[in-house]
Design a protein around this nucleic acid. Structure first.
Lengths: 251, 251
DNA sequence: CGTAGTGTTGAGATCGATCAAGCGCTGTGG
DNA sequence: CCACAGCGCTTGATCGATCTCAACACTACG
C-alpha cells in the first residue's frame, strides 16, 4: 500500500481530454481512486474465472488483459495504460473473462462494480463518458484485429506502435515520437497473433526500412504520416463526441 | 415503410432474457421502435465516415458491420440479429466507423443518438443493460479474434457457427441445433480472416468429420458438447450479471 | 560462474493465399 | 424453350508467409 498524493490523477487527465468535469463529477471520481494498491512487475492482478468483484483505475504502469488456453497459448486482448479504467467491458459477467497482469510496477485503485452503477445513476454524463471511452478502446481493438487478418508481420507491428503512441499522447500531450515499450517480443506476438521469432524479424525489417529506431526498450517512430496512410491508421483517441451525453447533474 | 404491429418486439425478448423490465422501461423502449424502415437484401444501411446520426434496433433480418480497405478487402466486424441494437459502440464518434449492410430483407428502427443519453438519464438501469449487452458482444468479438489467431480454418468456422447458434437461441429459446445461415462463404471468410476458398474447404472438412450437416443454406451442428470443449467455447449469451445495475426508477 | 530472461538467426515444414478451371443454379432475354 | 450471364461454390496446383525447432548471443543477477 503506497500513498502518492502528489500525483495528478491520470484518470482525470484522460477524461478531461474529452470533456471538462464538474466538481460533483470530480468528487465521484476521487472516490474511485481512494484505495491504492501496488503490484510488482510481471505480476498477476486478476485470474480468469475468479470472482470479478473489482474494477481498477490504473494510476501508474502498464498492464494487459489476456486469455490463456489449456495448451499454454496466451492471447493478449488489450493493453492498459495510466488513466484507463480496467473492467468496464467485463461488467456483464460475474466471473472475470480474462487474466490481468502487470508489465511494470503498477499502482492500481480497485473499486467495486457497484460504483459503476452508482455513477450511471448519480452522474449519468460521467457514466456516458466512461462507457464511451471503453467503446473507443473496443474500436481500437477492432482496428488491430483487422490488421491481424490483413497485414503482414511488419505492418501489424507498426500499426500497434502507432496505436500505443497515440494512446500515450492523450495523457502526455507533450510526448514526441519516442516511447518506452515495456512489452517484450512474446507480448507483442501474443497481441498480434505472431510468434516472438516473427516479431523479432519484423522489428528488424522495420528498422532497416527506416520506419522505427530502436534503443533497448525505447522505440522512436519515423515517417509517421506515411505509415499512417499506408496502414489506414485512424486516430481513435483524437476526440469523443459528447453531444449526445445526458446533461451534467447539479448534484 | 412497413408496419408490422403483430410482431412481438425482438428487442424486448432479447432484454427480458436477462432482466424483467418495468412498464416505464418498456415505454421508453417502445419509443426507440416507433419508426420502421425496410431494407432490401444485400443493401447498404450506413456508409463509413458518413454522419452517424442514428442507431438502429433490428426488428427482422441479419446484418453486418464491416470496413472496406482501399485495396478492396472487406473485414466484417460483427454480425447483427433481430433484437440487437446497432451502433452503441460507435456512439463515441460523430462519423460512422464502419459500413452497415443487410444480409436479408431487414426491418430496422432508426433512432437518434440522443435517445441513448436520455435512457441513461431517465432509466439508468435500462441504460446499464443496453451497455452490458454491447459489452457482451465485444467479448464475443474477442473470442472470435482469439480463434482467428489460434485456430486453423475448420476450427474458426466451427466456433463462428457455435457463436451464431447460441446468439439465436437467446431470442428463439425453442431452437434446436439447426439454423438458416444467410452468410455466403465470402462473408464467413471476411469475418474470420479467410478466403472463400478456404472456407469452402473448411466446411467440407467439418462435414466429413461429422461436426456439421449442410443442406442449402441451412446448417445443423453435431456433437456440440465435444466441439465446445475442443474450442474452449464459452457461452457469453447465457447470463448477464445485473447485480451492479442502478435501481429501477419509479418514473 | 551458472541461470533465467530476452533477443537473434537459420533451416525445414505447414497452412492458407492465389490462381485457374469448372459445376450447378437462377434469372433474363431472344 | 433455349442460350447466356452472373453468382456462389468446389476442386486442384503452386507459392509464400509464418510457424516450429534449434542453436546461440547478451544481460542481469545471485
Amino acid at each position: 500500500m503506497v500513498k502518492l498524493d502528489d500525483y495528478q490523477s491520470c484518470l482525470v487527465s484522460h477524461l478531461e481530454a474529452y470533456m471538462s468535469l464538474s466538481p460533483n463529477e470530480l468528487a465521484l471520481l476521487a472516490e474511485l481512486e481512494r484505495d491504492e494498491v501496488e503490484f510488482d512487475t510481471r505480476g498477476c492482478v486478476q485470474v480468469r474465472n475468479s470472482d470479478a468483484k473489482h474494477l481498477f483505475v490504473v494510476k501508474r504502469g502498464w498492464l494487459f488483459s489476456s486469455i490463456e488456453s489449456f495448451d499454454g497459448y496466451r492471447h493478449i486482448l488489450q493493453i492498459h495504460h495510466p488513466g484507463d479504467v480496467i473492467g468496464i467491458q467485463n461488467a456483464p459477467f460475474e466471473e472475470a473473462t480474462c487474466d490481468i497482469s502487470t508489465l511494470d510496477e503498477c499502482v492500481l485503485c480497485p473499486f467495486e462494480r457497484q460504483a459503476l452503477g452508482r455513477i450511471m445513476n448519480e452522474q449519468p454524463r460521467l457514466g456516458a463518458l466512461l462507457i464511451a471511452i471503453s467503446a473507443r478502446d473496443q474500436i481500437v481493438a477492432h482496428d488491430l484485429k483487422r490488421a491481424t487478418t490483413r497485414y503482414d508481420a511488419p505492418g501489424r507491428v507498426l500499426l500497434l506502435l502507432l496505436v500505443l503512441l497515440h494512446r500515450l499522447r492523450v495523457t502526455n500531450p507533450s510526448m514526441d515520437d519516442t516511447m518506452r515499450l515495456p512489452l517484450n517480443q512474446y507480448d507483442i506476438g501474443d497481441t498480434l497473433g505472431l510468434t516472438n521469432v516473427t516479431v523479432s524479424k519484423a522489428l528488424r525489417a522495420l528498422a532497416e526500412d527506416g520506419w522505427i529506431a530502436r534503443e533497448a526498450s525505447t522505440i522512436t517512430l519515423r515517417r509517421i504520416e506515411v505509415a499512417k496512410k499506408r496502414l489506414e491508421f485512424e486516430n481513435r483517441y483524437a476526440e469523443i463526441d459528447t453531444s449526445w451525453f445526458p446533461e451534467s447533474r447539479g448534484r
